[in-house]
Design a protein around this nucleic acid. Sequence first.
DNA 1: GACTGGCACTCAGGCATGTGGAGTGCCAAA
DNA 2: TTTGGCACTCCACATGCCTGAGTGCCAGTC
Lengths: 340, 340
Amino acid sequence: MLDERKLSVLRAIVEDYVATQEPVGSRALVERHRLGVSSATVRNDMAALEEDGFITQPHTSAGRIPTDKGYRLFVDRLATVRALSAAERRAIETFLEGAVDVDDVVQRSVRMLAQLTHQVAIVQYPSLTRSTVRHIELVPLDGARLLLVLISSSGRVDQRVVDLGTPPSEQLVADLRSRVATLCVGQKLSDAALGLAELIGTFTDEDRPVVTAVVTTLAEAFSDEKSDERVAVGGTANLARFGSDFDTAIRPVLEALEEHVVLLKLLGEASTPSMLTVRIGSEVPYHDLSTTSVVASGYGAPGESLATLGVVGPTRMDYPGTMAAVRAVARYVGRTLSTS
Amino acid sequence: MLDERKLSVLRAIVEDYVATQEPVGSRALVERHRLGVSSATVRNDMAALEEDGFITQPHTSAGRIPTDKGYRLFVDRLATVRALSAAERRAIETFLEGAVDVDDVVQRSVRMLAQLTHQVAIVQYPSLTRSTVRHIELVPLDGARLLLVLISSSGRVDQRVVDLGTPPSEQLVADLRSRVATLCVGQKLSDAALGLAELIGTFTDEDRPVVTAVVTTLAEAFSDEKSDERVAVGGTANLARFGSDFDTAIRPVLEALEEHVVLLKLLGEASTPSMLTVRIGSEVPYHDLSTTSVVASGYGAPGESLATLGVVGPTRMDYPGTMAAVRAVARYVGRTLSTS
DNA sequence: GACTGGCACTCAGGCATGTGGAGTGCCAAA
DNA sequence: TTTGGCACTCCACATGCCTGAGTGCCAGTC
């Protein structure tokens, strides 16, 4: 039903439409691509493709534009992955190398990604719950307060102030510090949770409130999803690509970008690193964003992903180029974070 | 030259234009405001106001719109400060009270401000260099590295990793910690700088590299402007108010919003808290933003301001309302931060 | 001298009309 | 199965007209 030539025609339509933003007709197609057949033949193929729902025409006597289904087929079967140029790769590398801490890595990635793809870029901060603890520290503050500092394997540093009620003895703090460290370092926090809970029972009744407060804070503040919700957004000036009508095209995207929860859902679950997720138009889980596509990838150490990054753009985007850029940036970010 | 009635006419024009976004004519003016004179008289006044550069007409036979100079006069002499409603004030208060840390306060303020003004809101994080040190801590990490934690009076917690070259003795760390703390706590970092520099000389040659590294990091990482550059932006969906032409109206603003340096310059120097700065159109120091206005205010303890917050919007904005909202939020944020 | 009513003039924006061109669908012939 | 040709459709653009809002000015009135 879909012979080789029809697929070529679809590919040609997608490529031309992405390039020109205008419905593409049969005549223009045979002129720009060496299809080896006449425009009449292409017209027949187009009719078939439209029948199958891969393309559509905005109105009679207009050219064709791809449907979401058409883009999907294009991405799955027709796109030839464009490799990044050496210059681009070098640019990513040197730009990311200049980062001084995790915050900086994320900022720079977002900029890089926006610049490479000319789309809106989103980078999620490395997940706390999914990385292991490198160092844990308890610092007594003035009064009955304790500063809890957590350094995770991705280099991220988080802190939280714990209110204890009563000032703890130096002895207790030191003891607690070493035992918590023994339990947690090298582990994921979630894996250490059980051990931490048991820890409480091993202290005297007197010390128990303090221990409980610390353990609870650890569990609550650092383990729940809240601390994984941080994201950076960049390249919003590229929203122009969505179209010129602010209310229907641009505003929904801007609103989504302000809702971090929505953003995280858009990026989706981080699968294994350098595994690309592409959602096209109606596949995006928000109705207002039905004319946008999302290209995302997990990033992190080769084994397991730390978080997700990606771009959102109009459905009529350059998928091969965007996918290549997202994949490349994800790879470099993962590398940068695991060696720092 | 500018009698009372002409000023009333100007005020009426500004108010109507802001409300309707359309050039306002003499007829409509006398209908909507009880000026007590006929439209012909208003026409004469308008001619005079135009002569003086306070208003202009987009084309012959159109109504008048205020010029930047007109808005300026309006803001300086004509605007009656609209007080926030009790409900609005209560909303700010309860919303900000729910914040758990400084980050949260800033996030919430930005949202609040955007929602109140229907403009794009910008909040600068409390300045490190301008607040005093509440607590300072040195935490030995694995290897020859030290974690430097700084808690400032605004509740902000910052940390930096120092690379020492050689692992320091526990004794040295403890010694250094207490002496640095003595020097810094209760002071601004900049005021303690001299004492810190002198501190180096009081250690033995052997210890000096370590001390130098710590002191330098303190001075460099926490004292320069870099750490004051953090800002939060919100309400970008309100960009619609700038107009419908993306390229000329919206894109320049989006681009400015991505450049933190530009943003900080827009907010301007924080003067004393609850002192409002209003820049109108051409008064804004960026040429691309000549159709935007900025309303900003410092915030902080009554004495001296910690940082700045504000909104950017089109020159045709509701100045009294915006100014009231900015002032109110600044006041509450200052209060919230100084009591936490 | 200040205000007012009246009048002629200007011009943007909306609406109807007309036209060119790009593109399609279909059919008969190769 | 492909192709050239032809009739048909419909958008985009240009043209022209008209209306209404608004102005500037002037002569008259208080």
